[in-house]
Design a protein around this nucleic acid. Structure first.
Lengths: 205, 205
DNA sequence: CAAACATACTAAACAGTGTTCACAAAATAC
DNA sequence: GTATTTTGTGAACACTGTTTAGTATGTTTG
């Protein structure tokens, strides 16, 4: 059965090839401009071939969406070492903002776009999102136990903090800050981080 | 020159006809499914005709985007009467959330989508957004003067508050809450408003 | 070895999209 | 009544995601 094994490996290789090409094109040109024909051209196969490996375009972008979460969780990983929960909360926030501002396309797919939504729904649990948000949830929990932030429901507070940082990043990546405060980009970025600091300090009990 | 006047009126009427059709279709079926051919069918003209009245699809959706802001500002209007700035701030937040949750498609166009962005840019000031955000800015200013919220830069605090409510609405309309907290929709909505309350109470000096 | 089968691939088509352009028809001006 | 301007359109261009029928290749079986 060695032949069958090799064949399966080959099949996975071609799947990987498609994903790698799609990821590269996506990060270079964005979602809209990364068409099936585009990917097909890049890997020198016919467009129809891609449908032998993926049910639809969004299935590919769901995988890229998960790669994004792998990246984010990687950046979150070391933060677990920080003992003080409030300090950890601050670091989580900063890391989240940095991730969003540095990887706007990944961020888009992960938290803004409708693209991978049908795929997310059919897995009935958004595992990627869940994993990332657990870091926040646990930290909030500790903050509450140690009474360093105002009392309230764990989930509700996590939701609030997530919404806050998401709001900052998504208004930034969708250029709504640019349109209203016509200050330089660096100044806006700086204010984004100041907002986080102001917000978290306010939460302090 | 009465004829010329009538002609101009007619022209505006047909422009209005297109916008009304586009708005209706947009609110019924969303942005993606509202195509030029769709609108053309609806108003019983050829698709090419639409391009006599609008440079591109996004110009139409920029106008719908502005209609959305007209609606939002209308809901903001009465809030100016509230004397206490903090109470006013709370009401602004609640109204913003309600607007977003009740008009997800308008909200999308106004604060999330890339569609009207080129149009926004070419007006070099995002007047619609500016007007709406001024309500917030002025209220924050008053809150600071009366020392009812923690001290900080006016613009930065406005940015923080806007980001917060935007984060709540946009995670909601893009179904990221649904994917992570698999509670009922009503429960999620309730928590959205609780988050606002928690956040604003935290800001209190 | 040849016939039967399975796998991998693709050209071509379908049904859409935004947009442009050459041309026709209608309304106005002279 | 002819000339000119305004108004509208069919057809095409260059795309999009996706499906299908058919081919070419490799593997298995009689």
């Amino acid at each position: 059965m060695a032949i069958k094994d090799r064949k399966e490996r080959d099949k996975l290789d071609r799947r990987k090839l498609i994903i790698e090409s799609a990821t590269r094109l996506f990060l270079e040109q964005g979602y809209e401009k990364t068409s099936i024909r585009n990917i097909a051209d890049d890997i020198e196969y016919s467009p129809a071939t891609i449908y032998l490996y993926f049910k639809e375009k969004d299935e590919i972008f769901f995988i890229i969406h998960e790669q994004g979460f792998a990246l984010l969780n990687q950046e979150f990983a070391n933060i677990g070492d920080i003992k003080d929960p409030f300090e950890r909360l601050q670091e989580l926030g900063k890391t989240y903002l940095n991730f969003g501002l540095r990887n706007p396309d990944y961020y888009d797919l992960m938290f803004i776009m409708r693209a991978p939504l049908s795929e997310i729904a059919c897995h009935d649990k958004w595992e990627a999102g869940d994993a990332a948000l657990n870091h926040l949830y646990n930290t909030v929990d500790e903050c509450l136990s140690q009474k360093v932030i105002h009392i309230g429901d764990k989930l509700m507070i996590s939701m609030a903090i997530w919404s806050f940082v998401h709001g900052l990043v998504s208004l930034y990546v969708r250029e709504r800050f640019k349109a209203v405060a016509n200050s330089a980009d660096d100044a806006t970025k700086k204010m984004v981080f100041e907002s986080l600091q102001y917000f978290l300090n306010s939460l302090r009990a």
